[in-house]
Simulated scan of single mutants.
Amino acid sequence: MNLKNRLLILVAAVLVLGGVALAATLHAAGRGAEKDRARPGGPRVGRGEVVLDAPGRSVFRNMAWGPHRDEIASVPAADPAGPRTSSGVRCLRFHAAGGTGICLQAVHGRLRDGYRAVVLDARLRELRRYDLAGVPTRARVSPSGRSVAWTVFVSGDSYAGTNFSTRTSVLDLDGWTLDRNLEDYRFFLDGRLHKAADINVWGVTFADDTHFYATVATGGRTHLVRGDRAERTLRSLHPNVECPSLSPDGTRVAYKKRVEGAPDDAPWRLYVLDLRTLRETATAERRSVDDQAVWRDGHTLVYALPGDYGSDLWSVPADGSDSPRVTMPAALAPAFTG
């Protein structure tokens, strides 16, 4: 076989192989698109205006596949399975109260990627932005809307183990005063000033613009603490509490509790603590909940669990009765306005 024929055979083989690869790629893409279109029960999502001070609305991160995934969306609180209005504003973590929103976003740059916290007004317009030192994980707004807080992972990406470090910041919107790291506050453990290199703080939930609750970890244990921004103090109240969420009447805290016998990668159960008596009540949710629950009202907790779209919202009574049920598929980080 001469050189010319060999070259012709080589070119033909390359074209055949290229055609096979292209066909396989198009077939896989077609199957993926068909799978997305064929997902049963997917929520309907359309572009529109989303506001944070409209009465009787649920606002959340939309997780449904499509052009509006990760956008802040809204539905009537009375019809959580209804059509969604999507805002165009994308957030990894989100919360809202008092007409203020806090949106923790990913930032994709030409040289490097990063994250930022964006404070939003009631029409989702940006008021201020702040660079973040790590991966967003928790966000909260005070009932009045005048204070916001966020937590990021500075190292590590899970609360399940012990090899992680967090940074939690609290921002006062009245003067735009930022406490960048709550680890700078004085921490009192069982009434005594406690100083240690391993202190981590996360999961703020506000009582008002000055006082809040959060989790402090040190020495391999976690503690519910009450924080005071004026005094710059954190005071321990109860052990084995993570990601607290204060009830609307300020008397109870919902939280993640590590329980004996649970898997290392799914160690938590959802509990409620009465702050007056320090009595704990286990909810009827028996699965591991790695979320900071939200109180829909004075009786019901809403929280995220893994689902077909990445995350679904579930609800359960706070008093330990009844059973969990899906509140909203393909959703995360809810807030209830009005």
Rank of each mutant, 00 (worst) to 15 (best):
G99W: 06
A160M: 13
R129G: 08
E183T: 15
G310Y: 00
S169M: 07
Y115W: 11
R37E: 15
L52E: 00
R138P: 07
D319R: 02
G203M: 08
R123E: 14
S321P: 04
P76Y: 00
R47S: 13
R57H: 02
R37W: 00
S86V: 07
V259Q: 02
R226I: 14
L22Q: 09
R6L: 14
S87M: 00
L246A: 09
L332D: 14
H68P: 02
R279V: 02
V152Q: 03
C243S: 14
R180P: 05
S321A: 15
H238R: 12
D198M: 02
D312M: 06
L52H: 00
A254I: 04
H194G: 02
E231L: 15
R47W: 06
R138Y: 15
T166K: 04
P267M: 08
A24N: 13
L224V: 01
S158Y: 01
T222D: 03
R6W: 10
V154E: 12
A73G: 15
S58E: 13
W202C: 09
P43S: 01
S87F: 00
R229G: 09
R138N: 14
A139V: 09
R229Y: 04
Y255L: 13
E34Q: 14
P80H: 03
N163W: 02
R110Q: 15
D312I: 03
P248M: 05
T281M: 10
V302N: 11
D322R: 15
Q105V: 13
G261C: 04
A160F: 08
V148P: 03
R116Q: 14
T210Q: 14
R6V: 08
R112S: 11
L237C: 06
L173I: 06
R140S: 15
L224R: 03
S74Y: 01
A160K: 08
R296G: 07
A64N: 08
D209Q: 07
P76Q: 02
H27E: 10
R269G: 12
R112N: 09
A331V: 03
R112K: 10
L275M: 07
R229F: 06
D190W: 07
G219C: 04
S86G: 08
V253L: 13
S147G: 03
M328E: 06
V201W: 07
D228H: 12
Y303N: 06
G41M: 07
Y213V: 12
I9N: 15
R57Y: 01
G203V: 05
L278T: 12
D121N: 12
F94H: 07
A254R: 05
S87K: 01
L26D: 07
T25S: 10
A54P: 02
L120G: 08
T205E: 13
R31G: 04
V11A: 15
D209C: 11
K35L: 12
S87Q: 00
Y213I: 11
G219P: 04
D274A: 06
L332A: 11
D190C: 01
V89N: 06
A23K: 08
F94D: 05
A33Y: 13
D79E: 14
L171G: 03
Y303W: 09
C91T: 09
H211V: 11
R186S: 14
